[in-house]
Structure formats: C-alpha cells, structure tokens
C-alpha cells in the first residue's frame, strides 16, 4: 500500500525500536537474560557468597549443594561465585573488544565507502589480506605476540572484528551514497565530513548495531577459546573460558566443573543472538508492518 496518506506516526528512534522489539518474544527473552547477567556482573562483588579466589581445600570437587550452588572446583573454590564474577570479564571483553573494533572498522569503512576509487581499493586489499588468515589463527598469533592478559586479549579480539565491520559499513555506504539526498547535501555545500557523519552514517547504522550485537556473542566464544588454550586471561581470574580450560582435566570425575561455565557461555551467546535477530527485524523499515 502507498505511503502517500499524510497519516503521521511519530517515530522517536529508540522508543520505536523498543516497541517493535517488544512484539518479538524471543528477542525480549534475550534482552532480559542479558540485562540480568550484566546487572549480576556489576553487583557481583557484593552478592557472591565467597571470594572467587578463596581456596577451601576441604571442599575440593564438592557437588552442588545448598552451601555451594554450583559446587566447588579442584581447589575448593566456589564455582557459583566464580561464574558470577567471571561474567564481569567475559561480557566486558566481548563488549569492549567489539566497541573498539567497530569504531576502527567503521572509520576505515566510511573512508573507503565514501571516497571510493584508489583509496577504497588500497583499504579493501589490506582488509583482504587480514581476512585471508583464518580468524582464530589470527587471534592466536596476535595473542601470542602480545602475550596473555585482560587488555591484551581485548586488543587481539578487537583487531579481529575490524575487517568485518569495515566491509559491512563500506557496502552500506556504497548503497546509500546513490541516493539523491547525498547530492542534495552536496548542493547545499555540506562538507565531506558532514555528509559522512550527519547523513551517511545515521542511515547505515542499523545493520552495524545488529552485526555488533552478534559480534559480541562471537567474541565471547573466541575469548573463551583463547583462554582455553592458555593465551587469554590467566588464572586465577575466573574468565569462563579459562575456567573451562582448567576444568577439562577433571571432566570425568567432576563434570560439574565444566557444566556451569560452559552453560554461562552458551546462555549469553544465545541471548545475544536472539537480541541481534530481534534488532535486525526492529531496525529494518521494510519489516515494519
């Protein structure tokens, strides 16, 4: 049906997106899980029943019980406290790494997409080279060079997200650039900087948000993977991947050591993916009706 009806529906960006999202039950579930996790992570130091590094050798490999909800690990540390505290590391690594990667990727993508020609060619070939290396391998190499640690892991992971983001924004920009409103902006003397920041990026941002949300999920699994092979965050910091890595040798006698951090990763990734899917639908104007 035509949109020529003059019939006005107010659209305030965030409110509309939330309204659209609220129709999608799966996405709302994802949002609820994720917000709960983030709140728990922030409050973790105040609510965890035991210090995450407190070793109680009498409780080695204790099964889940009223005293220790998730049981205890090989050094008698309370797994519930460690999973809860670990959320601070795992989720923050995911979010910060994607934020850094997106910021750099978007800048590069915007430059390539707007200017086109040789600039575009050079940037895209450089990104091709980076993308030619398998993602996990690239991360292992960077972590190996930088060494282990929280911030170094973030840097390694953010480098991995750059090229994907840059490509996505470039493709969006190439499409948007064809619209007449860009020519209109030129004709009223907008500078290139203004055209990019004030017209192009706001119109390209929706898929970027979706992709970033999904990217966080991917980055959390990658971070866990790095920790698992001993390159990421180091013990005794209770990052979920590191916990898995430490627990794997006891998987036969005490499988609950693996269950809970593994479950935490799975639930978070699922929540992020559900949220990402919901955002994709909510931000796409073609699916609005």
């Amino acid at each position: 049906m035509p949109k020529t009806t003059g019939h006005a529906k107010k659209q305030g960006g965030f409110a509309t997106v939330m309204k659209q999202m609220s129709k999608n039950k799966a996405a709302m579930l994802g949002l609820v899980i994720l917000s709960t996790e983030i709140i728990l992570a922030i409050l973790a130091p105040y609510i965890i029943p035991y210090d995450y590094s407190f070793m109680d050798m009498t409780n080695m490999f204790a099964k889940p019980s009223a005293a220790h909800f998730f049981g205890c690990d090989d050094m008698g540390r309370d797994i519930f406290s460690r999973v809860l505290f670990g959320a601070r590391y795992s989720i923050s690594i995911g979010i910060i790494a994607v934020a850094i990667g997106s910021a750099i990727g978007c800048t590069i993508g915007a430059i390539a997409g707007y200017f086109g020609g040789q600039v575009d060619n050079i940037i895209m070939r450089l990104l091709d080279i980076i993308q030619a290396i398998p993602g996990m391998l690239l991360m292992i190499v960077i972590s190996a060079v930088l060494g282990p640690g929280y911030f170094k892991t973030i840097i390694a992971l953010s480098i991995g997200t750059i090229s994907g983001m840059a490509r996505l924004l470039r493709a969006q920009m190439l499409k948007e650039r064809e619209n007449e409103y860009i020519e209109a902006a030129q004709s009223i003397n907008c500078s290139k900087f203004r055209i990019i920041t004030s017209h192009l990026i706001p119109n390209c941002i929706s898929p970027m948000i979706v992709s970033a949300t999904m990217g966080v999920a991917q980055t959390i699994t990658l971070a866990a993977g790095l920790s698992f092979i001993g390159l990421g965050v180091q013990p005794p910091i209770p990052e979920w991947g590191a916990m898995l890595s430490a627990a794997r040798q006891f998987i036969r006698q005490a499988p609950h050591l693996v269950y809970f951090p593994g479950l935490a990763i799975a639930v978070t990734v699922l929540a992020l993916n559900l949220l990402g899917d919901g955002l994709r639908d909510a931000l796409d104007p073609k699916l609005k009706n």
């Binding site: 619209n179 409103y181 902006a185 706001p202 119109n203």
Partner: peptide, 9 residues
C-alpha cells in the same frame, strides 16, 4: 524523486 532526495533520518 521526493522519496530518495530527503534524508530519511
């Protein structure tokens, strides 16, 4: 084109 000549956002 009155549709593509205005910035939708």
């Amino acid at each position: 084109d009155p549709y593509s000549s205005l910035d939708p956002r």
